[in-house]
Amino acid sequence: MTNIVAGALAVNCRGLTKQYGQGDNAVQALRGIDLQVRTGEMTYLVGPSGCGKTTLISVIAGTLDRSGGSCEVFGEDVASWGERKRAAWRGRNVGFVFQALNLVPTLTAAENVAVPLMILGEGHDKAVRRAEQMLERVDLGARTRSLPAQLSGGQQQRVAIARALVHDPRLVVCDEPTSALDHDTGQRVMELLRVVAASDERALIVVTHDARIFSLADRIAHMDDGRVERIESTPTSRQP
């Protein structure tokens, strides 16, 4: 296993390509991406719809195969593994905040947050106790037994963040985390994510086209047409 130190290379993509379909129906989603993400930083992937942001985080998170190039995450070429090993790796190392949240509507907030722990083999009761502690950290200690439908959009987003962090992953990927939230709520959610998730041993990648929250990023990778056009560091950057 790779030893992680603050500012270590978490993600290293070189000439990364991804093509959907074949022949006349082929769509080139990624056209040679070069991107490095370090631990301890929050990197935003921004750009217009269809520019390949979601495809890129899917490949980085090990949920989608690449077509060409290389993509190492914490020094591991995850794409070269079989699905079973990749799933186990994702379970241990990646936290997800999905655009549609994907909270299970029939489970309580605590149970939803406990799911990644239970996937890793932890018992229900112990996992739920840890999930409740995590919910305390995102200021939802009083709503642990609420169903998603009983929570506001912002609260649901905080549950999703708690679920992404409860198993202490080294990489957190967030897909459009503020798209369904108003400006103030979106700002608060991203600030919370930064406070709760920021760690010298963890890398955060956030896909967004919400310019209102750009100020919270350490680095912003601007994408267009399957390429990273430019990378800019923001004033909050903690880059070494």
Binding site: A87, G91, F98, N102, V104, L120
Partner: peptide
């Protein structure tokens, strides 16, 4: 109806066997 929940669990590391 639960397809997205199952897919989310799969993304979060749940194996096909699980």
């Amino acid at each position: 109806d639960n397809q997205r929940s199952f897919a989310a669990m799969k993304a979060m590391g749940a194996s096909n066997f699980l």
